[in-house]
Amino acid sequence: MVNPVKKADRTPVGAHYGWQDWLAQRVTAAIMVLFSVVFIGFFAVHGSVTYAQWKMLFGSNLFRILTLLFLLSVYYHAWIGIRDVLMDYVKPTGIRLALQVGVLLFLVACTIWSFSILWGTY
């Protein structure tokens, strides 16, 4: 007797969370491109930047938020990319896990540091 295939049975592998990272990597990339254009544009307009101009740029809450969005995009993007690289080249599970945890801790530390730089140095 042939058992009817239930809808849930058709999924051969995986929990389908891979596409979320795939998409996140691309969305964060787009955010970084936009910020890069704004930032390079600022330097293209001003040429050599003075301390006063630099302070004024980062004195604006809007620009601080944009910078934070950029940095958070960098960290998320880097996490996905480095994780992919580790999965490709580091085969022993224990070593790979240790490296991945190290990368994650580093990026979380960078996130905290970013908040402290952007809102703490004033």
């Binding site: 960098v74 960290y75 880097a78 990319g81 480095i82 690289v85 990368v103 960078c110």
Partner: peptide, 11 residues
């Protein structure tokens, strides 16, 4: 370039 930027450019 991605790995290099992660390791050196971010910090």
């Amino acid at each position: 370039t991605g790995v290099a930027m992660f390791a050196f450019l971010i910090p």
